[in-house]
């Protein structure tokens, strides 16, 4: 990946580990996959607990409905697929059968964003935050690394109700250690700074930290916040950042509309409006290496620095 940080594991690998652990601890956990168990890593649970794993075939809509029925009859259900297929093909089922009645279904979309790479745009989920955020009552989460993914998935499993988690295909820079406490619904300030705030999630957090370091060399101190939970949003931490730094850039591996930037902007406008800029995707991408895609579609530390310069100018 383009971040200069040391790479850890992909967040989908954390998912496989968490499932296996949950399987040992809880008999009510059931896992469904739509013929992508090897890729999503739900296959690790399948190998260990085959009687509680069901491969649904390539039937995402049915998978979402079956999950709702299982949950209504007392199971804690994880459903996994690529986030593009799960959210787009299962959307009405997630709406009617999961979100509306508030069933205890954990929707795990792997291979989120454009960094799934060479397989191309049909597989790339660039609209999943928008879709998930449009389901009232559904927790929406996108962890940045292995450790935070483990902690957040464990918390999501422990609480009742529906949740969507976007995970990545690629290895992610290590940002947290086992000593860090990552809390669902609580944004994490990873770097302090008083001149502006960089808000990001997923792989973009590493890039935001890189950008902050580049700016520090020129005397600009950026605060960097990992907003791993888009709902419930930690509005207090964002409001404090807006108030204390006076400018903000939001970075996401998602369409600029109706994703992290939108919810953060809404929170900031309602609390302490400041100049903001948004670094994200404008449309569909293409095949290529993850690094080449990030560079071509403008998800780089350099683009973040450029956006930062704009908000700093607007602040004055």
């Amino acid at each position: 990946m383009s971040s200069t940080r040391a790479l850890g594991r992909a967040t989908r690998d954390a998912f496989g580990d968490v499932l296996v652990k949950l399987g040992a601890e809880r008999g009510d956990v059931v896992v469904l996959d739509a013929d992508l168990a090897k890729s999503t890593r739900s296959g690790k649970f399948q190998a260990k607990y085959p009687e509680r794993f069901f491969d649904m075939g390539i039937c995402e809509a049915n998978m979402c409905g079956v999950a709702a029925g299982l949950a209504a009859s007392g199971k804690t259900v994880f459903i996994a697929s690529f986030s593009s297929f799960l959210l787009c093909k299962g959307f009405d089922q997630l709406r009617m059968a999961v979100a509306y009645p508030g069933e205890n279904v954990k929707i795990i979309g792997t291979h989120g964003g454009i960094t799934l790479g060479e397989d191309g745009a049909s597989q790339m989920s660039i609209e999943d935050f928008a879709l998930a955020l449009s389901l009232p009552g559904v927790v929406v989460c996108h962890p940045a690394d292995d450790e935070s993914a483990k902690q957040l998935l464990t918390q999501i499993a422990a609480q009742q109700g529906p949740a969507y988690v976007r995970l990545g295909r690629e290895k992610a820079p290590t940002l947290y250690s086992a000593n860090d406490k990552v809390e669902l619904g609580r944004a994490q300030v990873l770097r302090d700074g008083g001149d502006l705030t960089l808000v990001a999630n997923g792989l973009m957090v590493g890039l935001a930290l890189d950008a902050a370091e580049q700016m520090a060399a020129t005397g600009v101190e950026a605060r960097v916040i990992d907003v791993h939970t888009l709902r419930p949003l930690d509005s207090a931490t964002l409001a404090a950042a807006a108030r204390e730094t006076g400018a903000m850039v939001v970075v996401e591996e998602h369409l600029k509309v109706a994703g992290l930037g939108s919810v953060v902007a809404q929170a900031v406008v309602e609390s302490h409006p400041v100049p903001m800029r948004f670094v994200g995707l404008e449309g569909y991408a293409e095949s290529g290496s993850p690094a080449a895609l990030l560079a071509k579609y403008g998800l780089t530390a350099e683009k973040i620095v450029a956006a930062a310069k704009e908000v700093l100018a607007a602040k004055r």
Binding site: C64, V66, G69, A72, A97
Partner: peptide
């Protein structure tokens, strides 16, 4: 949608 939900109950 109902048959899928019914399948979930039946499977449980």
């Amino acid at each position: 949608q109902g048959l899928s939900i019914a399948c979930g109950h039946a499977l449980a």
